[in-house]
Amino acid sequence: MNDALDVALRLLAVFAVFLVLPLVIGQTEHKVMAHMQGRLGPMYAGGFHGWAQLVADGVKFAQKEDVVPAAADRRVFQLAPAVALLPYLLVLVAIPIGPSEGAVGIIVDAGIFFVLAVMGVGVLGSLMAGWASANKFSLLGALRTAAQLLAYELPMLLAAASVAMAAGTVSLPGILNAFEWWWLPWQIVGALVFFVAGLAELQRPPFDMPVADSEIIFGAYTEYTGLRFALFLLAEYAGIVVLCGLTTVLFLGGWHGPFGADGLGWLWTLLKTAVLAFIVIWLRVTYPRLREDQLQRLAWTTLVPLALAQIALTGVVKVVMQS
């Protein structure tokens, strides 16, 4: 019975993180972007600096009419947001935030493998949405999404494989247990490749060609309204949480820190994740959108070779150290 309670609590915690952290990042994005652009951002909802803006948005979304175009493939159209959102929930369960067994949803042996495989499912949601909408803009957007995932999944896999080589395991807690501070400079190229490729998979600016509003309205999500549209947005922000968390765990040493790693390890994880999330927002404000062919070229001619070089470096250093 105790086991059942333990599992229930873990699931509840993961689910709470899944609902709260994306909203925190969304609200931060509102405020940070505003201040970077010399605006104030939301100021009214909730009273104090508009802290409840996203709650208000959620209430508004829930009251909106749910329009399914007459020409659309109804069932697939309605199911797509769920397919886009749920993979990120599943990935969160495997990310450790602290050194103890209580600080991870569940230890999955094949950690990296599981995480990358499940994250790849999310793109099906966008493809389903774009195809089922029976809208030319949506179809174009969906195809761009798929092409982008194809291009950037490979450097991401290779960069992650480099960490697995360094640690000699694919389990996420195992990687953190093996972590040493000098992995940071050793794996820095892999870290950059992983983070950039992750940004592209989430279709965040400057890689937001699939939803480029000035040419294809909102890509695959053009026909969506109300709650279903809100779920797509939630998926994007949950994706940011997952990407930043994973980068922290794989490359930045997760709960390791200069001090207090035993008791306050989870604080280090959260801090590093938050800093990365801030960078995600910062990049959105800073860079213009890449063109579609530039997007593909960056992946194939820059990131993939860099990731291969990182694997070579990791392999040589590891074998030299071992002998």
Partner: peptide, 14 residues
Amino acid sequence: SVVGLLALVGVLFV
């Protein structure tokens, strides 16, 4: 099986 349970929670949520 815990991952499966979480998937179930997610489906329920949606």
